[in-house]
């Protein structure tokens, strides 16, 4: 049975100034993802408002990219085990969506910018053909319209001399320009949700600032929501309205970025924040090393083995995600 996944008429991006709908654009509830015996995501829940920016932060192995891949239907049943629910703007539960259902969503309502633009772009095709392909295939534009729209898109992402760039191959562009092209491709269909998986980790700081600004400006202009996968908490505090801190596939702490980062309550958030180098950092107090266990039978908090505040209870029983002081927190023994 196919799910009803077409874009609701009321949610056209041409009217971004309309009063914000009270219902969130994206609702993820108790989403679990498993591969064989390994439980990669363990009951992840968060919501994203229309037009807002959310940051998924944590170390490698936290499940940040896995969430993004699940949200764009690149991790589906039965290759992975999926439980719980994810819904886009009140749609049916996407956990049950088939590839046929995802074809109606992917690239149209949800699109993604990958970490490494140079390997996400196909080296055999020109920038123009890769940028025009969503315009022609998904929006049904003719070749002439698609070409002029492609030029507009490249100009909007700040590539000068756009018409000649259309005939360039990806290797003829710098890393920053390739990432701009990726953004143009992702935004070509005016998606409601843009997923950006560490879009700037391979770039210089100066170019990073340009690209993050560009993503924020362009999604705002279109009234779209954006999920950033990041590992830099300082950048997350600048770019995101909401932050979800993940460890080993579990949500540790989630909430508005100013509340959460100004006064972290979870020992893990606190530890991550202490690892961020600022120009006036005198002494670093790094988190002890360690990697999460993904065994599906771990009953407790996955951060417990590395946690300075751990109690015997933390190993035996998983703390629930509860509202504490303006954010959601899953911890038996918070830092403050």
């Amino acid at each position: 049975m196919a799910l009803a996944l077409a874009r609701p008429a009321s949610a056209q991006p041409e009217t971004p100034s309309a009063a914000p709908a009270p219902a969130p654009l994206l609702t993820v509830a108790r989403l679990s993802l498993s591969r064989g015996e390994k439980l990669i995501l363990d009951e992840v829940s968060f919501t994203l408002k229309r037009g807002a920016t959310l940051g998924l932060v944590g170390e490698s192995g936290a499940g940040k990219s896995t969430i993004a891949l699940a949200l764009i239907g690149l991790l589906q049943k039965p290759q992975v085990g999926l439980e719980g629910s994810m819904a886009l703007d009140g749609s049916a539960n996407l956990v049950d969506a088939t590839e046929k259902d995802w074809l109606k969503l992917r690239g149209r309502r949800v699109s993604m910018i990958f970490q490494d633009a140079s390997s996400a772009l196909n080296p055999c095709f020109t920038v123009g053909s890769q940028l025009m392909s969503p315009l022609r295939r998904l929006l049904g534009m003719g070749p002439k319209d698609a070409r002029s729209r492609a030029i507009e898109l490249l100009e909007s992402v700040g590539l000068n001399d756009a018409s000649s760039r259309l005939d360039a191959y990806p290797h003829q562009l710098s890393g920053g320009m390739q990432q701009r092209v990726m953004i143009a491709i992702a935004l070509a269909t005016n998606p409601e949700l843009l997923l950006a998986d560490e879009p700037t980790s391979a770039l210089d700081v100066t170019i990073q600032a340009q690209i993050v600004r560009l993503i924020l400006d362009e999604t705002q202009k279109r009234g779209a929501s954006c999920i950033f996968v990041l590992h830099d908490l300082a950048l997350a505090s600048q770019a995101c309205d909401e932050i979800v801190v993940l460890y080993g596939g579990q949500v540790m702490e989630a909430g508005p970025s100013d509340v959460l980062l100004a006064e972290p309550l979870h020992p893990y958030t606190l530890g991550l924040k202490a690892c961020v180098l600022e120009l006036d950092t005198e002494e670093l107090t790094p988190l002890p090393s360690g990697a999460p266990s993904f065994a599906s039978r771990t009953p407790g908090c996955r951060f417990a083995p590395r946690c300075g505040n751990a109690l015997p209870k933390c190993v035996d029983e998983k703390p629930p995600l509860e509202t504490v002081r303006g954010r959601k927190l899953a911890c038996w023994n918070p830092a403050a």
């Binding site: 710098s174 920053g176 320009m177 700081v205 100066t206 170019i207 990073q208 600032a209 340009q210 993050v212 600004r213 924020l216 830099d232 908490l233 300082a234 950048l235 505090s237 600048q238 770019a239 100013d258 980062l261 100004a262 961020v276 600022e278 120009l279």
Partner: peptide
């Protein structure tokens, strides 16, 4: 100064980035 401005800082709005490459 441009390099300094581009470095992410907690809670500050993203500074006007240095143009070009």
């Amino acid at each position: 100064r441009a390099l300094l401005n581009a470095a992410p800082k907690f809670f500050e709005p993203i500074a006007e980035p240095l143009g070009g490459e």
